[in-house]
């Protein structure tokens, strides 16, 4: 990955490296920060800067299935907010919280670029389109049994 960036500019790989590593281990850990800092020769503070900035990077552990529900305008117009309320009620958790069994976590997200198939949600990196409360129920059931 470092080879994709100009010589001496290996810091370019920082964000992809953090994100891809996070996908593998589930969260940004202190060990990961140290490792990335070494590999890319960047200071700890440079990593802190991006960790706080990019919403997809997170230090806390999330559910095995991270359900991200868009409530931005296009989704809102077609029931995104109701979907969000429904999911919170169904799972008994709020924004950026995880179910007790660790299977599902919820996040209210900004536009995920699926506006023409709204309301849309992301489960980890999988899109689900034209979601209804009923199809969401079925989806979540599926996720919880899949674990």
């Amino acid at each position: 990955m470092i080879g994709n960036y100009p010589t001496g500019r290996q810091k370019g790989a920082l964000i992809p490296m953090l994100l891809y590593a996070q996908d593998e281990i589930g969260q940004i850990t202190e060990e990961l920060i140290d490792e990335v800092s070494k590999r890319l020769s960047v200071n700890r503070v440079e990593i802190e800067e991006v960790l706080g900035y990019y919403t997809m990077l997170h230090r806390e552990k999330r559910g095995k299935h991270h359900v991200q529900i868009c409530t931005n305008v296009s989704c809102m117009l077609r029931g995104g907010e109701e979907l969000w309320e429904h999911a919170c009620g169904k799972l008994g958790i709020g924004n950026k919280q995880t179910t007790a069994d660790g299977s599902v976590s919820l996040e209210e997200v900004e536009c995920i670029g699926a506006c023409s198939w709204a309301p849309a949600i992301l489960v980890n990196y999988d899109f689900h389109f034209n979601v209804t409360p009923e199809s969401l129920d079925a989806l979540i059931e599926g996720l919880r049994t899949k674990q």
């Binding site: 994709n4 500019r9 810091k11 370019g12 790989a13 920082l14 964000i15 992809p16 953090l18 994100l19 891809y20 890319l40 960047v42 440079e46 800067e49 991006v50 900035y53 990019y54 919403t55 997809m56 990077l57 900004e110 536009c111």
Partner: peptide
């Protein structure tokens, strides 16, 4: 090159910052 969650990175100079491994 993957982004990691930031609308602002759609602005071209912010995108370049992000490409260089910085905040957008």
């Amino acid at each position: 090159h993957t982004g990691a969650g930031s609308y602002e990175c759609g602005e071209e100079s912010a995108l370049l910052e992000s490409l260089e491994g910085k905040r957008g």
